Simulated assay, not measured.
Amino acid sequence: MSDFLLEPDVIFLNHGSFGACPRPVFEEYQRWQTRLERQPVRFLARELPEVLANARSEVAHYLGAQPTEVVFVPNPTFAANTIARCLPLGPGEEVLMTDHEYGACRFAFQFAAQQKGFRVVEQPIRLPVESNDSIVEAFWQGVTPNTKLIFISQITSATALTLPVAQICARAREAGILTMIDGAHAPGQIDVNLAEIGADFYTATCHKWMCAPKGSGIFHVREDRQHLIEPLVVGWGWGKEKTFHRENEFLEYHEWLGTHDPSAFLTVPTAIAWQREQMTLEVRQRARDLVRTAVDSASQIDGIERVHADPFFCQMGLIDLTALQIEPDALKSRLYDTYKIEAPVIRWQERTFVRISAHAYTTQQHIESLILALREIAG
């Protein structure tokens, strides 16, 4: 697809890591940067509050939330640190997550646990999974009277598994347990409605599957939970002499982190418009079909196995190369150096996975090239 700036000689099957920004979105990003540099004081001090509020309103509407419940953040790692540092968690209390969670966010809670004395519990979810109900039941085995917060991904990074987050949030609400969802891989890959998910806290990237510029993410906090969240970075939005006045304290505390380039945030509405125009249901389904073809074809090769059944993956799929006994870094280097294939090789629970992503620019030839490379490597 000509909209993307990707190098044409690379088979890019790793949209899941950092995304890829389409040309129209990138050009809008540069337009905002130019506008900022032409008159920085006017832009940051006088114009930014209104244009940022407009962008926040658009992304909130896109995700099924209220504008006063959403702030822009650089990435989900930032939001996870905010929750881990701010929630009043202490000795004897527990944060429950799966053993599939993204490393940086997991580390944020482990670091805070060392400081505050609470425990981080990683509940195993065995692969392959059988049903959403089986996932919920397996995960709920980790809940104890000490569980105060559940932190789980909507789509896991390491294993590309779609988790039934709405079911888990509903059950947690009945038990009086707070919930935070890491939706880094969800918006733009699947439809997201935060009101229906019902999490207390939700974070996501805009620069992955939404195709916005790098460094754009959102942090959603339900209005009745906002009093729990203190700013991770204290700046001009906090004190009596606050420079920026917003609709409520949550926005004042968290929206202005000091001088930075907000252009990535302001470009998100353009990325949303591009999504609606270009990433139609047919285009998404084609990408999913390509991933399914890749997984099905790869699993026919001796030493390679599929991991998930169709309902549990979308535009990211997983194949298991553990039986080939190849060191992950060596495998990743060979895929790129020999075949010009950019795909992550992941080590998880003593297993070696290759994660395959497909987007609008992915072609059948890309998948065929991957399968040919895997056959040669396995041979």
Rank of each mutant, 00 (worst) to 15 (best):
F4I: 00
L13H: 13
L13K: 08
N14L: 10
G19P: 01
R23Q: 15
P24I: 05
F26D: 14
E37T: 15
E37G: 11
R38H: 13
R38S: 12
Q39V: 03
R42V: 04
L44Q: 02
R46I: 00
E50F: 04
V51K: 04
L52H: 11
E58A: 14
A60D: 06
A60F: 09
G64N: 08
T68E: 15
V73W: 05
T77A: 10
F78Y: 12
A80S: 13
A80R: 09
N81L: 06
L87Y: 01
P88E: 07
P91W: 03
L96W: 02
M97D: 01
M97V: 02
A108E: 06
A108T: 03
F109K: 11
Q114T: 03
K116W: 00
F118L: 03
F118W: 08
R119S: 04
V120I: 08
V120H: 02
V121W: 00
E122N: 04
E122W: 00
Q123H: 01
A138Y: 07
A138I: 01
F139M: 01
Q141P: 00
F151I: 06
S153T: 04
S153L: 14
I155T: 09
A158N: 13
I168G: 04
R171S: 10
E174L: 07
I177A: 00
D182Y: 10
A186N: 13
Q189E: 15
I190M: 14
G198V: 07
C206R: 10
K208A: 08
A212P: 02
K214Q: 10
G215D: 03
I218R: 04
F219E: 06
Q226V: 01
H227T: 02
L228S: 04
L228Y: 03
V233I: 15
W236E: 13
G237F: 07
G239K: 13
T243W: 08
F244R: 10
R246I: 00
N248F: 05
L251D: 01
Y253H: 14
T259G: 05
H260W: 13
L266V: 12
P269V: 03
A273F: 02
R276H: 14
L281H: 12
V283R: 09
R288K: 15
L290W: 09
V291Y: 02
R292F: 08
T293A: 15
V295E: 02
D296F: 07
Q300S: 06
D302C: 07
R306N: 13
H308L: 15
A309C: 01
D310K: 15
P311V: 14
F313L: 05
D320R: 00
L321V: 11
A330P: 00
S333Q: 11
R334N: 15
I341W: 04
P344I: 03
Q349S: 07
Q365N: 15
E368C: 09
L372D: 10
I377E: 00
A378Q: 09
